[in-house]
Amino acid sequence: MWERLLKWDRDTFIYLNGLGIEQYDVFWSTVTQFTTWIPLFLLFIALFFLKFPKREALYRFLTVLGLAVFIALITHITKISVARLRPNNTEEINTLIRILKTPTDYSFFSGHASSSFSITMLVFLFLRQRVKWAILFFIWPLLFAMSRIYVGVHFPIDILVGMVVGLLSGWLFYAFYERFIALGSRSVHP
């Protein structure tokens, strides 16, 4: 069973990565960079301070930062513990695939997927009642995670697990905020 799953993962990766077209390489190489998304992060911060009182906005922002640290730690620990090679470092397939990036750390699970989906989930939950189009925030993690297959550095399972971990972590931090922080941030007037 496990071998069949890994074979499906490898074969699906090779197929999806092979769909890449050279004319889109610059697009996907740009999409996969964290720095490309800085304007979106600034939008998130601006929306917090536009839609909530200052103290509440600050607490929400700090909760997002706490989540970012948490997800980075859990992703790093998992990568070291599992020690799965990235596709670009896997000798049996790296001559069959398109490689646009060459990281040397481990693959499971995708930090791009876990971080982007966790932050987006938390920001969405914070803003969904105040920003009608907040669901559009999920375009970012979808593109960001898909780019990892295109540039040759993550298998589909790495991305799917990273996505699930991210969504659950975002929801967990939202529940934590509502349970322990929200009342205090709303009851104190600046």
Rank of each mutant, 00 (worst) to 15 (best):
S115Q: 10
A134G: 10
N17P: 07
L47V: 05
I45G: 13
T36E: 06
E3C: 04
D9N: 02
A175G: 00
L122V: 04
L168M: 12
I80H: 04
K54G: 15
A145C: 07
A182I: 06
G20P: 08
N17V: 03
T30M: 01
R130Q: 12
A113P: 04
A134R: 00
I45A: 15
L67V: 01
T120I: 02
W28G: 08
F44A: 09
F109M: 02
F49G: 13
F13K: 03
I74F: 00
L65H: 09
F126C: 05
T32F: 06
W171E: 07
Y106Q: 04
I14M: 15
N17Q: 07
L127W: 11
L125T: 02
G18K: 07
S116C: 08
M121P: 01
F117S: 05
K54H: 11
P103W: 08
I14P: 11
I80E: 10
I93H: 10
I14A: 06
V164A: 12
S115L: 14
P190A: 12
W8N: 15
R128T: 00
G152I: 06
T30H: 09
V31I: 15
N17G: 12
L16T: 02
F155Q: 07
Y177V: 03
L43D: 08
L6I: 08
L19Y: 12
D158M: 13
T32N: 07
W171C: 07
G184Q: 14
R130P: 02
I77C: 05
L65W: 09
D25H: 12
V151Q: 08
F52R: 06
F117D: 01
F126W: 01
K132M: 05
L42I: 12
L122D: 02
M1Y: 08
K54F: 15
P156C: 14
L58I: 08
L127D: 13
K79S: 08
S115Y: 10
W8G: 13
I135C: 05
T75Q: 08
L50K: 14
R60D: 13
G152A: 10
E178P: 06
T35N: 15
A145F: 11
R55L: 15
T120R: 04
K101V: 02
V69I: 13
F155W: 04
S115T: 02
S110I: 00
S187V: 14
I119R: 07
A46M: 11
F27I: 11
Y59D: 00
Q23H: 10
I74A: 00
P103D: 06
P87R: 11
I157Q: 12
S116L: 01
A134V: 07
K101T: 13
F176M: 13
H154I: 13
F61L: 15
I38V: 15
F108A: 07
Q23R: 15
W8Q: 09
Q33E: 15
L136F: 13
L67W: 03
A113E: 05
I45E: 04
A134P: 05
E92V: 10
